[in-house]
Design a protein around this nucleic acid. Structure first.
Lengths: 219, 219
DNA sequence: ACAAAAGTGTTGCTGTTACACCCATGG
DNA sequence: CCATGGGTGTAACAGCAACACTTTTGT
């Protein structure tokens, strides 16, 4: 590999969702060598007539079938040995999907969702990329920096569900009464009037975020 | 320009400093066409045997003469018309320098420091890049996210000096007594025992950040 | 009736806000 | 002695942390 000012760039997508009180990521199983049988992030090589954002959106669309979505750039990775042959620079993006889109949540032999603390064997440096990006993201979610917590709950949720996710991301437990009080007393959530139906135990109140109060709110 | 999977990448450096209570940026004046006489960010084309971080460090070293420094990656810009000929992807980095390094602060015809709210005529899309990156950074400084405020004050400072910078970045005034109390009462700063010498008016107490208390502290 | 999950109240502490006067230095 | 800039106290309020029991549902 000779010295050159031309570089190969790929876009990698971390498709995430708050599901069952966990932070989950979508991965695909590699069907051919190299890394056959390993899991990888969806991605695509960038051509010089496309901007990074469009490349990321295209992957998102092809992968999930969704047109809209919260997608944002995170970090560029440029280690010389990232790929097996020439150096490929990866620009990572995060896409956040609503937990209620259960149709794309079906696991098959080729694609599946994983809790970010239970990742399978990953190809290339994708494990490192996921860890770096998620580590940054955890801080943003738990402080609601860039309104990141809101983005994971665009539709209705119960406070225990929100708390489970929050505790999972924060990796430590929080007092339930204080958590509840904070959101209700400060009008950060709005009672939809609906309750959860199924399951044992008392049904939970379904809330949604009060965007006006929640935007810019620091947790 | 034909379709290809090879891309040109440049690294652009935003060298910043908290000086005289303002946030300032280092710029260079372009001596040749295109954009002759306009100001631009220092930068360098990336070759495929170098990682982005090293490229940024090299620019920093050549520009400031300093070996060490707080440098971190911010965002990649990939608009098709960024450059005049083929599309060049810019990966921006921020470098924060100590305000006390006054020797590199000397303005010449070719290089100078500007307050980020008083930028000169800029070449390429560098104004847009600066605005985007600084807009993100302002939020981090004022909330001390990623300990960003600390990074701008590695050495001694007076509380009024810190407050001036803070108000400049936040773009709104703060009560002096409350600002003082916050930092002193919570032991976020340590009295060095020294005072400012020159100037009219009562000398100010020189503090430095109490790193243990300040790390992770949210303002 | 019991198991499972959701809901709630009080108290003390800590930090925030709003507000006006005194102190140390140089000229 | 005056101009300039730095340092300080208090009271009302808001949010946070620590604490255990009751309510609603399904089985």
């Amino acid at each position: 590999m000779e010295n050159s000012y031309y570089n190969v760039i790929e876009t990698l997508l971390l498709i995430l969702s708050a599901d069952e009180g966990k932070l989950k990521i979508y991965l695909e199983k590699k069907k051919e060598e190299p890394y056959k049988g390993y899991w990888i992030l969806p991605g695509s090589i960038l051509n010089n007539q496309t901007i990074l954002e469009d490349n990321a959106k295209n992957i998102y669309q092809k992968t999930t079938g969704l047109d809209e979505g919260c997608i944002f750039q995170t970090k560029a990775f440029s280690d010389l040995k990232r790929d097996l042959n020439e150096r490929v620079i990866a620009v990572s993006f995060v896409a956040i999907t609503d937990k209620t889109l259960t149709d794309i949540k079906q696991s098959t032999n080729e694609k599946a969702w994983f809790q970010i603390d239970e990742l399978p064997k990953l190809g290339f440096d994708h494990e490192q990329i996921i860890n770096e990006v998620i580590s940054e993201l955890r801080k943003k979610i738990t402080t609601n920096y860039d309104d990141m917590l809101i983005k994971f709950f665009p539709s209705d949720f119960t406070l225990p569900e929100l708390q489970n996710f929050y505790e999972f991301v924060l990796s430590k437990p929080i007092d339930r009464r204080n958590f509840h009080k904070k959101f209700v007393n400060q009008d950060l959530v709005i009672d939809t009037g609906f309750k959860t139906a199924k399951g044992s135990g008392r049904p939970g109140t379904l809330y949604r975020f009060n965007i006006d109060k929640m935007k810019g709110k620091r947790l």
